[in-house]
Design a binder for these strands. Structure first.
Lengths: 148, 148
DNA sequence: GTAATTACTTTCAAAATGCAAGTAATTAAT
DNA sequence: ATTAATTACTTGCATTTTGAAAGTAATTAC
């Protein structure tokens, strides 16, 4: 797992890891859409191809951004979850969404509106905290609660 | 100029535009390294290929993120500058750099340190404002000052 | 035991990127 | 005024990344 970086610039090095069509989209699907299994991802609106999904999940795991595990009584289904390191991507995602909201609407008239966007506009940091804590809470429920 | 978006998600739509190896790197080179001409970009450490550079500069201009102009007494050299819309990408870049600083150092030991990073750590918003205002100030000097 | 589900892998096509060389217009040098 | 250098590209081709479709092995449900 020796990733090649173009140079020593912190901006560029993040883009070396995250600058493609899928890495951050997968993280978003986990964070805001609660996706956890391979199947969940293939069924999403964004419809990532399974070969690419396999590669990207592997990479995200190698980078320590997500973890891969199984539930107690299911030997088949893999459960993918964001690690603390992965959750630190949330502010990046929030800034991307804010930028879309401000700059893409004329080019993309059907871009989502609603409660989420309103909170994002009102208070970016609060929006970020909400995403992170609600994700952590869901995990807590799943790990501590009665096993499915 | 009808860009294709995968869906109506604001996160994903930003990634549709910015999610590649070069778009944000070019913006960074303008914002923090003061690059303005085609030649400037080809001479950078990141060494973008000229064919790709041409395509990306065109796209950034079509999207209204950069402007293309010439200096009064030079019919050859094109000057590329960030627009207000392009400057709004700064918070995204800052979050990317902060994430690199926090999460990439073990994987990438030669990642930059120094004054810039210290300010970034101390106060992300101040760092963002500094980048934006110093870029705008440089433009002001170039546009209002004595012509070269 | 059979069928469905899940997490992949494989194959091949298409698109993005990388590298090297070439070109046209402009500017600088003699 | 002619030649050389510079700038902003374009072109051609190899490589890498991504996309679409089909196939497979292990597990689970009926």
């Amino acid at each position: 797992m020796d990733y090649k970086f173009r140079c020593d610039c912190p901006f560029t090095s993040a883009i070396d890891i995250l600058g493609d069509k899928w890495m951050l989209v997968i993280v978003k699907q986990m964070l805001v859409e609660g996706k956890e299994t391979f199947k969940d991802f293939t069924e999403s609106e964004e419809a990532i191809a399974t070969n690419v999904l396999t590669i990207k999940l592997k990479l995200l795991e190698e980078l320590g951004l997500i973890s891969k595990s199984k539930l107690p009584h299911n030997k088949k289904t893999n459960i993918y979850r964001l690690t603390a390191k992965g959750l630190e991507l949330t502010p990046i995602l929030v800034e991307l969404a804010a930028w879309s909201d401000h700059n893409l609407r004329d080019m993309h008239p059907t871009l989502q509106k609603g409660k989420g966007i309103d909170l994002l506009r009102a208070d970016k940091e609060a929006f970020t905290r909400t995403l992170v804590t609600s994700y952590q809470q869901k995990l807590g429920i799943k790990n501590d609660g009665p096993n499915e």
